[in-house]
Design a binder for these strands. Structure first.
Length: 968
RNA sequence: GCUGAAGUGGUGGAAUUGGUAGACACGUUGGACUUAAAAUCCAAUGGCCAUUAUGGCCGUGCGGGUUCAAGUCCCGCCUUCAGUACCA
């Protein structure tokens, strides 16, 4: 009976599906545990071996937790809205819904082959109208909320309206637009409806505003900050420019402090928390108001160093600052205009590329120092960013290197306000060793004291206050795309109106072309049926728009992160009960939040931040009961591809083997890795068929082989280094794939894939199989019965073999060695799983199986628990052996074996003895020996050694040190 | 520049609180079994030296330090990867 993994795996995958083995229940006596993967975007390329890494890890943990007696929720779904499907639609004209459907089917098929314990009955797809109905609903809730700084949470907009009409807005402490006007209750009540809506929009948690956005002409869409890498789009690497557009935004800045504080309550890696902290970018300091001389204007700046206020010798405004045109003197106007134009032309990328070049222009205007009343020249310079703080800085050249460089470059005065510090070469930015001087009332103070005093004095004269600034910007929520959630919004006189919940979902309309226009007109602008009828409450044809009862609908769609910001709540509800809520109160209360979340670190400042934001919002409005969505988070590392390279002699059609490449001038070409064997030898026949250019090529071999070069890089179709998990499952089985992916190295680390190594774990599984089918070796050829059976009929043959060597060996009492091996393994595997070091437990299994094989262990009391330990890693083979041992229930329900220390206890142990740190001899001592006896024994041996080695040891230590130390 | 992580054989990687560095696996070499191949099994495998045998010396990026004892702790460097960046 051989280990037929294909048969076994298909059998048990079918069994699990039919018996709904992994279906989670929303009520249970057991404690709950929620294990979640970041759901995949189903691309057309399908899965490669890198994708399932995190899923395997989470699956091991989920299965382990089931053995440990938890009610485990382990769902899976698809993040199915997004750009690639739309790009494909643009190219082929195929509706993205259709390609998405096809891709999902492929993904599902591939995932099923790996034997995950997903509860598919809870699947979600973000592009499914029944799902995005609730994404739209959450959007409406955000629209109907404002952030109350006094209660420090979001509240329904009605409570704000009530306050407005009873007391106006002067005493309201809310997160809102900077430009909001002050009004009394009377004024509010007399405002027109439009005016009221306009004001409320400045308070809502999602709002419509003219914002400067990152516009990517090539993609025809707006990108969020986290979708831009080095000034170009993350996807495709297209240039990005700044552009003003009316967009929906999310007031995530209201949650900046809570998003920061919340990090202390969750179990994430330090590096990930640190990225979020940096992204939120809290800085504590002061805002200072400078009056502009000869103008009725003020400039507000943010500074983290109010203690250096007397060191200000100039101010710099961002070129985009609105005051620039107002204060520039006629003499300077030409220069300023030229500079502004030049800056506007430069892309974000150019601006970042030459950080070194110092540029700027004097406006001709002067501000007035709040304390000394001295004139301060006002400059503009592109080192000041319009998007951070107030877009203006008070420049303290002696304390800030950029200000210093700027001052040096333009010969501006550099007053020194630091005692005993030389600033002739560079600025002095060390806060901790600062004593302020030349600064009036701040003289002699350190950083801390001076800061406090400076803020106090600024407040006294009404020209500043302590302020905390965050780098976190409000998130733009509009995309000029087709394949995304439509907004549940229509416009009356230009003011957005929400469609009532009972009329949701608003489904995507059909359009002729999916391409956005260069000018930024969204694809939904092409839809003929895309207007809202407030009478019939349905979407109707555009030509019915009459501005009385039929109104235009929003043309933008939501960004990719909309659907992924709450999907983990959707899984909590079983599909059958999802009708009336996004998840029922009972389900939300039971499952609370995700206990373990596994996914890539690339989502650190995108998805993970937005999901935390929405969760906090939903909690504020009492829709969910938790403040943080993901208690523990692990980032799995990427699995890299190992590309294969052939070397073509330049200008010829001759290819030389890797070892000979230095003899020629060669070009490197990447070829399909699947044609290369474990020893880097390529199959030339396959290569010739692979691409026509190789068909009649000449090959120069070494030792009769063509050896390829290797390069480790990202797994990608364009490098021909993609390894398909289906092929691995076919050839070695899913259990081998699962074990091998874990065996490759630590989960969180990036590592290259190398198919050759899989024979190690595959061999282990074969050995395991043998261990459970051991017995006397029977020479079938000499067995007369052999000829009674038809060896070609596998069933008969196998049955014969099974009787002779089968699993039905007599059960015997386990030996001490058997139990030691087992309990050693239990201990290690349990520790490993709890620490997510799955790679080392694979080794532990290998050792255990080798030991038990040597021990010829046939005891059920050892073989059964061993299967349970291994079952999270290799679920198929363990199910099969488990059932062969006579169990009728799935192994998934078996309890995790209990570790017993007593089986590891030994009567004596070899202790190495060290002399001056060098190991000289070992001593076998009973474990329960007293300290005195040990000392005596050691001294005796010391004497012997002294004679043997002819030298006197100074100190003798018996290790392990915690047992005894003898110093003498 | 800042933040985070990491440097161990030919390779992936192990190594409890500091306690026999290199587990386990790949690869390589040799052997067994085969007409042969595959599969399987056995042995060797950090470097250098020595050998009849026991063995000896050097070794965890570099330079110091603490300690009876350092891959592990401390100080100072170097390198790599990841994230972030005129953030006032």
């Amino acid at each position: 009976m051989t280990y037929n993994f294909n048969e076994i795996e298909a059998k048990w995958q079918k069994y699990w599906a039919e018996n709904q083995t992994f279906k989670a229940e929303n009520t249970s006596d057991k404690p709950k545990y929620y294990v979640l993967d970041m759901f995949p975007y189903p691309s057309g390329a399908g899965l490669h071996v890198g994708h399932p890494l995190g899923y395997i890890a989470s699956d091991i943990y989920a299965r382990y937790k089931r053995h440990k007696g938890f009610n485990v929720l382990h769902p899976q779904g698809y993040d199915s809205f997004g750009l690639p499907a739309e790009q494909y639609a643009i190219q082929t004209g195929q509706h993205p819904a259709i390609t998405t459907e096809t891709n999902i089917a492929t993904y599902r098929k591939q995932l099923d082959k790996i034997g995950f314990s997903f509860d598919w009955s809870r699947e979600v797809r973000t592009s499914n109208p029944e799902y995005y109905k609730w994404t739209q609903w959450i959007f409406i809730q955000l629209f109907e909320s404002w952030y109350n700084n006094n209660t420090n949470k979001a509240e329904h907009i009605d409570t704000l309206i009530a306050k407005f009409s009873s007391e106006g807005n002067t005493n309201i402490n809310a997160v809102c637009d900077d430009n909001v006007i002050s009004f009394t209750a009377d004024e509010w009540n007399n405002f027109s409806s439009e005016k009221q809506q306009e004001i409320l929009l400045q308070y809502r948690l999602t709002y419509l505003a003219e914002t400067e956005v990152n516009w990517c002409p090539a993609l025809g869409t707006v990108l969020a900050n986290d979708e831009i890498v080095n000034g170009v789009s993350e996807r495709g690497g297209h240039p990005v420019i700044r552009k003003k557009m009316t967009q929906w935004s999310m007031r995530i800045s209201a949650y900046a402090e809570r998003l920061l504080q919340g990090l202390d309550t969750i179990d994430w890696t330090d590096s990930l928390k640190e990225s979020q902290r940096n992204w939120i970018g809290k800085s504590v300091g002061a805002s200072v108001t400078f009056n502009v001389k000869n103008h009725d204007e003020t400039i507000e700046v943010f500074t983290t160093r109010p203690d250096t206020i007397f060191g200000v010798s100039f101010m710099t405004l961002a070129p985009e600052h609105e005051l620039v045109t107002k204060i520039t003197t006629p003499e300077q106007k030409a220069d300023i205009d030229a500079y502004i134009q030049a800056t506007a032309k430069r892309s974000e990328r150019d601006r970042m590329a030459d950080v070194k070049t110092i540029s700027g222009v004097f406006t001709g205007a002067y501000a007035e120092h709040p304390f000394t009343k001295e004139p301060i020249p006002i400059w503009i310079g592109d080192y000041v960013l319009a998007g951070y703080g107030t877009g203006a800085v008070m420049a303290v050249p002696c304390g800030d290197q950029r200000d210093y460089d700027f001052a040096k470059h333009f010969n501006i005065d550099i007053p020194n306000i630091f005692e005993g510090v030389d600033i002739s070469q560079e600025a002095f930015a060390d806060k901790d060793n600062t004593i302020i001087t030349n600064s009036d009332f701040l003289n002699g103070m350190n950083y801390k004291k001076a800061t406090k005093r400076a803020i106090f004095e600024l407040e006294q004269i009404g020209q500043g206050e302590g302020k905390t600034n965050y780098r976190l910007r409000d998130a733009v929520f509009s995309r000029q795309r087709y394949w995304g959630e439509p907004f549940p919004v229509y416009y009356v006189n230009g003011m957005p109106q929400m469609i009532e919940q009972k009329h949701l979902p608003i489904t995507l309309p059909d359009v002729e072309k999916y391409l956005p226009t260069e000018s930024g007109e969204p694809p939904l602008g092409r839809a003929d049926v895309w207007a809202w009828d407030t009478q019939s409450n349905q979407v109707v044809s555009n030509d019915k728009i009459d501005d009385k009862t039929v109104f235009p609908l929003e043309l933008n769609t939501m960004p990719g992160w909309a659907g992924s910001s709450w999907y983990f709540f959707r899984y909590m509800e079983e599909q059958a009960n999802r009708g009336n809520t996004f998840a029922s109160e009972e389900a939300l209360q039971y499952w609370e939040n995700v206990d373990l979340y596994i996914g890539g670190s690339e989502h650190a400042t995108g998805h993970l931040l937005y999901a935390r934001f929405w969760t906090k919002f939903l909690k504020d409005r009492n829709f969910v009961g938790v403040d943080e969505p993901f208690k523990k988070l692990i980032n799995q590392g990427m699995i890299l591809g190992t590309s294969a390279i052939v070397y073509r002699v330049a200008g010829t059609n001759k290819y030389v083997s890797s070892g000979l490449k230095n003899d020629y001038e060669v070009e490197e070409l990447r070829v399909d890795v699947n044609m290369v064997n474990a020893s880097d030898e390529i199959d030339i026949e396959k290569l010739k068929q692979w691409q026509p250019q190789f068909a009649d090529a000449e090959f120069e071999l070494e030792d009769g082989k063509y050896i390829v070069g290797r390069e480790v890089e990202k797994m990608s179709k364009r490098w021909f280094n993609v390894v398909n998990p289906d092929n691995i499952c076919e050839q070695y089985g899913a259990d081998s794939l699962r074990l091998y992916e874990m065996f490759l190295g630590p989960l969180e680390q990036a590592k290259p894939w190398n198919t050759a190594g899989i024979t190690g774990v595959h061999g282990f599984l074969k050995k395991l199989w043998k261990l459970y089918h051991q017995g006397e070796d029977v020479n079938l050829k000499n067995d007369p019965n052999f000829y009674l059976h038809d060896p070609k009929k596998d069933g008969v043959y196998s049955a014969f073999k099974a009787v002779k060597r089968g699993i039905g060996l007599p059960d015997v009492e386990p030996t001490k060695d058997n139990l030691k091996t087992l309990h050693k393994t239990i201990k290690k595997v349990e520790e490993d799983i709890e620490n997510f070091s799955f790679n080392t437990s694979v080794s532990t299994f290998m050792i255990a199986v080798n030991e038990l094989t040597t021990q010829k262990c046939t005891s059920k009391a050892v073989l059964e628990p061993l299967l349970v330990l291994l079952s999270p890693y290799a679920p198929h083979i363990t199910e099969e052996l488990w059932s062969q041992l006579g169990n009728t229930q799935s192994i998934a329900t078996a309890p995790f074996p209990k570790f017993e220390e007593k089986h590891l206890v030994e009567s004596s142990k070899n202790y190495p003895i060290s002399f001056n740190g060098k190991m000289r001899f070992t001593l076998e001592l009973p474990l329960d020996m007293s300290k005195d006896d040990i000392e005596k024994t050691v001294m005796a041996h010391e004497k012997t050694q002294e004679q043997l080695q002819g030298r006197t040891p100074k100190k003798v230590i018996v290790v392990p040190g915690k047992i005894v130390n003898i110093v003498g």
